[in-house]
Design a protein around this nucleic acid. Structure first.
Lengths: 170, 170
DNA sequence: TAACCCATGTAATATGTTACATGATTTT
DNA sequence: AAAATCATGTAACATATTACATGGGTTA
């Protein structure tokens, strides 16, 4: 017998979250939503998503059944009660939520002392310009990410401004 | 012949950055600084750090030599000129810097509609409380991360406040 | 002298990326 | 009729985690 992991990975949690919100969906749908996410972190690569769904099914957190109404290969995925509970546990984990995660700009700023000031200023200007472009969801299923995307982009822009203000003071 | 990757991973870039700043150091020192980082993203696991250093050496971005003054196994690592150039290229990549990365709280907030309001409020309170605790570096080599850590923690706390303000309006 | 830290690393395993394979359906 | 998209996945490879192994030096 193989030992069952007690925690969900980010991807696994996000997959369950997507399925719960959708009510029911296909693996392709899950994958596609990740692919169209504004964050490159959620690459939606097949080699990540399909195995993740399989793992979750083996753990009884998702269940799938073939859809006979369609002649294509197609499996309807739903979340089990156990899956919903695991998701809730993951979502409410404040210790995890407070972790700093990974921010590609912040990581670069940790090494700001290794960059000539003029180049650093240009980096921050360019980064800010890219962050100023709002996310335009292609699918209705991604509309709900837009508000949070806006919040987060503005938050990161504020961090850039704060960093620059602090630098000028020195 | 194996094809040489043209880009650095986060870990590889951070390793070179650490070595450049230190001037010269041991693999153990690199590893330890990651382990003591306030971000769990930089786990500093041996199985990640040692192979990363080996890869960078093979690519001619770092070089190491045995230190004979000490009887322990000990290798002094320095960055090559090519290594410095690759690091600079990585640091100044604004397209990468603007990527959203991964934030464990933001990911949870994407699913905030799946959490009962009272529990969501408690999650945000707890998360904020943890973020209010400043990072106290144990080593002098980690002192320089404190200011940016403060900036980023305050930035994330501001995002929490903004999220709550926006929620109340609805 | 026992326990711990310095310093190196490897082995088994888990996860993720990139690229490919297959076939049905829809759009141009 | 060709190209794109829907829908499934796998194979080879790269990277990361966890746990272990080894041995010298330092502290209680």
């Amino acid at each position: 017998m193989s030992k069952t992991p007690t925690t969900l990975t980010n991807l696994e949690a996000a997959v369950i979250g997507f399925v719960v919100r959708a009510g029911q969906c296909t693996a392709y749908g899950v994958r596609d939503s990740f692919r169209q996410s504004p964050s490159a972190h959620w690459s939606g690569s097949a080699g990540a998503v399909y195995p993740a769904i399989e793992r979750l099914e083996e753990r009884g957190l998702l269940k799938t059944r073939a859809d006979k109404t369609d002649k294509r290969m197609r499996r309807e995925i739903t979340a089990t009660e156990a899956g919903r509970q695991e998701l809730t546990k993951w979502l409410l984990d404040a210790d995890q939520a407070a972790q700093l995660g990974y921010d590609p700009l912040v990581t670069r700023l940790y090494f700001s002392d290794l960059i000539p000031p003029a180049k650093l200023r240009r980096l921050l200007e360019k980064t800010d310009a890219r962050l100023a472009v709002p996310f335009e969801p292609l699918e209705t299923s991604l509309e709900h990410v837009a508000p949070l995307n806006n919040l987060w982009r503005e938050t990161r822009r504020a961090a850039i401004a704060k960093f620059l203000r602090r630098q000028r003071q020195t």
